[in-house]
Amino acid sequence: MTAITIGVSACLLGQEVRYDGGHKHDRYITDTLGHFFNFLPICPEVECGLPTPREAMRLEGDPENPHLMTRTSRIDRTGQMTAYCEARARALESEDLCGFIFKKDSPSSGLYRVKVYNNNVAAKTGRGLFADAVVRHFPLLPVEEEGRLNDAEIRENFIERVFSYRRWKDFLLKSPDIHGLVQFHTAHKLLIMSHSTQYYRELGALVGNPHQLPEKELFAAYEELFMKALALHATVKKNTNVLMHIMGYFKKQLDQGEKQELLAVIDQYHNRLVPLIVPLTLLKHYVHKYDQTYLKQQIYLAPHPAELMLRNHV
């Protein structure tokens, strides 16, 4: 797999670029994700020409089209910031990004529920100007805020999407053709199913009738559906469905005791008594014991490094 690069708000990497001259170093990002990802640090406020330290700013006015105002001197920095954001977003096209982690609550980089003021009354209805520019320019790019990564399910979903996006980009780098797309889709079938049966059907129909579109359009349509599918969370219910689907491949090999044990473990997972890694470990044992070639190639069984322990939460 090609090296994975993600954009990260520079302050989260320990760079002293915040308005007060400080940082918001996030150890999970640098000490854990840093083993698997390359980071592209970005601080929009510094890169657009503002000093450190600097006067604090906030968003004001219409949440859909807010102004970026300094708090005390009342200088409107909107034009300066938006010009930077548009140019920087275009420049990011050459960085081969597979994801972006933004600083929460920032008027430039906050992704969700950023405060927007009207008559000095704040409503958490906005998005930072730079984060908004990135999302609009790269609508399929996996994006998240560092604060939300504390939620195990959100963390797993984001990181899984980052690795999946890298696999898709790698596919596009290798002189892609329809045969290759079929192979890619086949390997990702169960992963897609764990996120959305609707998108699973739509992607299957797309790959099953590949000549209805020119190749370039076919790949673009697949990418859009694929990334939209993975943006939906793989819930316990969805995963249970996939686990039972996998078990079906062993109906002729497992004896009665093995079937009962596997069903019991899947039921424990379904009732949130054990993490997903428990039934998956048993299933992977059977995959290799009975040499299930189709299942061996399924990305679902190992969509990201085990060291991240993303499937170890209940």
Score class of each variant (00 low, 15 high):
Met81Gly: 00
Phe219Met: 10
Leu92Ser: 03
Leu273Gly: 11
Tyr112Met: 07
Asp151Thr: 14
Ala205Tyr: 13
Phe226Val: 08
Leu232Ser: 09
Arg18Gln: 07
Val265Thr: 14
Ser108Asn: 06
Thr30His: 09
Asn239Asp: 05
Ile266Ser: 03
Leu273Phe: 08
Val114Ala: 00
Thr78Val: 12
Pro66Asn: 12
Asn150Cys: 06
Lys289Ala: 07
Leu97Val: 02
Asp20Gly: 15
Val8Thr: 03
Leu203Gln: 03
Leu40Asn: 01
Arg166Leu: 02
Leu276Ser: 07
Leu273Asp: 07
Leu301Ile: 08
Ala3Cys: 05
Asp177His: 15
Val8Phe: 08
Ala133Gly: 03
Ala302His: 13
Ala87Asn: 11
Glu145Lys: 15
Ala123Trp: 05
Met227His: 09
Leu129Tyr: 04
Asn150Ile: 05
His185Arg: 10
Pro63Gln: 15
Cys98His: 09
Leu40His: 06
Asp255Thr: 14
Leu50His: 09
Leu295Glu: 01
Ser106Asp: 04
Lys259Asn: 09
Pro303Val: 12
Gly180Phe: 13
Ile42Ala: 01
Phe102Trp: 11
Arg113Phe: 03
Phe250Val: 14
Val242Ser: 10
Lys104Val: 02
Tyr112Asn: 07
Gly128Gln: 04
Tyr300Asn: 06
Leu181Ala: 13
His288Met: 11
Glu215Val: 11
Leu232Lys: 15
Leu92Lys: 06
Val114Glu: 00
Leu190Ala: 09
Tyr286Trp: 14
Tyr117Thr: 02
Leu308Asn: 03
Phe39Asn: 03
Ala231Tyr: 09
Met57Phe: 10
Ser109Thr: 07
Glu261Gln: 14
Glu93Val: 05
Ala302Met: 13
Gly79Trp: 01
His179Thr: 14
Arg18Met: 05
Tyr269Lys: 08
Leu149Cys: 09
His233Lys: 13
Gln15Asp: 11
Met244Gln: 09
Ala234Phe: 02
Cys48Arg: 04
His195Thr: 04
Gln212Gly: 09
Tyr300His: 09
Ala91Phe: 06
Lys289Gly: 01
Lys289Asn: 02
Asp267Gly: 11
Gln212Arg: 15
Ala56Asn: 12
